[in-house]
Amino acid sequence: MKNKYINKIYEYILPNISTKVLIKFKFFWHFGYSINLRNPKTLNEKINWLKLNDRSQLHTQCSDKFLVRDYIKHKIGEKYLVPLYFQTKLAEEIIPENLPDEPHIIKTNHDSGGGIFVRDKSKIDWSKVQKQLHTRLGINYYPRSREWQYKNIEPRIIVEKLLEDKNGNIPFDYKVHCFNGRVRMISVDMGRGTDQHYRNWYNTDWEREKFKWSSPKENGKNTDPSDQDLKKPKTLKEMIRLSELLAKPFKYVRIDWYDVDEVLYFGEITFHHDGGFRPILPKTWDITLGSELELPIIAINKS
């Protein structure tokens, strides 16, 4: 019900509201108190401050799921890239003849939505897929999110290899959160797309963190930590080293990885985890983590 009302509000106010005002409104809506943009203290406040003040062409490139491949290739090498099978700006070109016979995923490069999993081309309604992709190509993610890096991405469709481990399972999703070029914590998503979607938090020594930073699931629950502990991945040191190479130009950034039978593949780069609008619990940890993120001293952007 809450989302229904907020969607109606967005429909009427988005075209005429400034980024700063929208951030203030959304922050109060989610947290129940006003954001301090002049002297941000919590991690969520600082992420929103960065949304207003930390903008560059490199942010746009790294948020583009197609162009980021060049950044990865240049910084750490193309062996970490998921194989790319096809790319196009036209939904009508997503037809079986242009796609591989092996499992793959179809997604757009300019938004934060999920992809279309294809394991058997003969079982796909391609007209439905094209219609869905055509709609997604016409959406600019920026007006609602006000995350500037998405504003000028040229929409396109990319088709990549579907990553699966030796047992045919989708690999765990490791999200490496970096503060000022150094890895601070790692979250691991398990069971994505299911009711058993959990998210555990670890430090760089693979010890459980004492906080949670959960996202909403489709069933109305959250991606809270699992009671089950996860074995430390053998690729952890490499994951940390590579993440810090990629994170060096940025104040806060999240580098996502997949570990497929001890082989690392780059996932994506995110600059504002959940938009800076999801609570960190216990609340004291929002302040603790915020104190560890250093911001540059510049004038507040009034956009």
Results as ranks from 00 to 15, higher is better:
F86S: 02
L81W: 11
T60C: 10
E78P: 11
Q61L: 09
L58R: 09
S56I: 11
V82E: 03
Y71F: 15
S63N: 07
D64S: 02
F86I: 12
V82R: 08
C62M: 15
F86Q: 08
L84G: 13
L84H: 09
F86R: 05
V68N: 10
Q57V: 01
P83C: 07
P83H: 03
F66R: 05
G77Y: 03
R55E: 04
V68C: 13
K73Q: 13
I76V: 15
L81T: 09
I76M: 13
I76H: 06
F86W: 11
H74V: 11
S63W: 06
S63E: 05
T88F: 06
P83M: 11
L84W: 12
L81Y: 02
L81H: 08
T60K: 12
Y80A: 04
S56T: 14
H74D: 15
Q87M: 12
Y71V: 10
K75E: 13
H74L: 14
G77N: 13
Y85W: 11
H74S: 15
T60L: 03
C62A: 09
K65G: 05
Y71A: 09
V68M: 14
R69Y: 12
K73I: 09
L67T: 04
L67V: 10
F86Y: 14
D70H: 08
D54L: 01
Y80C: 05
S63Q: 03
I76G: 00
L58T: 15
L67H: 04
L81G: 06
V68F: 14
Y71I: 10
I72N: 10
